[in-house]
Design a protein around this nucleic acid. Sequence first.
RNA 1: GUGGCUGUAGCUCAGUCCGGUAGAGCGCCGCGUUGUGGUCGCGGUGGUCGCGGGUUCAAAUCCCGUCAGUCACCCCA
Length: 423
Amino acid sequence: MAKTKFQALRGTRDILSPDSERHRALVDVFAEEARLAGYGHIMSPIFEELGVFQRLGDSTDVVSKEMYAFEDRDGSMIALRPELTASVVRAFVQHNPAALPWKAWYEGPQFRHEKPQAGRYRQFSQVGIEVLGSDDPHIDVEVVALGWRFYQALGMSQVSLLLNSLGDASCRPAYHAALETYLRDHFDDLSEQSQATLEKNPLRVLDSKRREDAGIIAGAPLMVDHLSAETAEHFAAVRAGLEALGIPYEISPRLVRGLDYYTRTTFEFASTALDNAQNAVGGGGRYDGLAESLGGKPTPGIGFALGVDRILLACDAEEAFPAPRTAPDVFVVDLTGGAEAILLTDILRRAGIAADRGFDGRSMKAQMKVADRSGAPWAVIVGEDEVANATVTLRDMHGESGQTSVARDALAATLNTRLHPEN
RNA sequence: GUGGCUGUAGCUCAGUCCGGUAGAGCGCCGCGUUGUGGUCGCGGUGGUCGCGGGUUCAAAUCCCGUCAGUCACCCCA
């Protein structure tokens, strides 16, 4: 019979130790930044009604061709979340919190059916925040700054912040028309793909990376030159806040972003340490119309999502945020056949000491080798002599203190003192 | 989704052009005499050469398909 060897599906992968510990540590750093800034944690479902995500815009690839959508058993259409903003806004509308602004942070996997590449997976992880119920530009500043400080907390230095304003209902339509007129005037000079994009969403033509489009895009009218007085003032306040914090940014007038719901402030964090096309390590912006489109009261909102997988790639590239060490505190080498180690590791673990041990009745030499490889700073050796005396031999694996005999009853206390001399 | 490149031991890779029956380093296991790791020495384990089909006396090597990775576009985190 045929032997089927399974493997993780395309675009998905197993994250094994110590990379998984690193991933968790990154989320811990983010959680702390969010806590310090007054954000509560939200855990929303991984799948939702398809309609929740269709509000992101029909012209976006995320909705039109990358969604994992399928029919549930009762015939209703559901989808694996391709992003989290829509889910969080849906939760906001559903629970209708009274105290505004409402601030939430999240982390977790998301799903998009794309052709995978390094830093681009079908199941990928993001951390992010959303704030609903205020359009105070100081919120924009807080949100962008939180992202910036997070990268700093990870030890990253090669991150640049790109900032733009996409205008709002008071000025975007006029700009949109001006841009479309301009692009249509140069229609024949645009690349074939940009011609198609123009039909769907002229704004996104500005995002084209094809060389043949560069000249035309360079001459295109810019949103920042068409902002209404109010929107321009809002944008100025955001910039002033970032400057007050000393956070460097670059105005990127052609920064569009892929989701249709963005208004006014939009931004992207790009790693300059990554030289591939997947150098965006985070992005976000304001979405003042999204809550209403999901059935809620008109409520302004802003947030960002940062790609965990890409951030870790960028960290690799600039040698930041290494995987945490996962070594146990102590490794038990048992020469009696292994039964003693059962008791000793239990005693140690209950005392809060991370203890691993040898198995399979291996030779002392072999067990010492495993102990060394484990990285444990201490080894506990127990053989017939020790059992007879109710002692164990405590060996310093790295330092100079050598070996000492310790009463078995005093082992946990002795080790705790050695591991935490300051206490 | 479109196009290019790649796929050989756990890992990094050589061998592929010019078909002839699989290699290195690292890792892993064991030994270097009485219960001691990290260095060193010796020995060993380990691959249906991604998978399937075809050509051939013979295929890791040529051809086709397929899966996966990767790069660019697209898109985006």
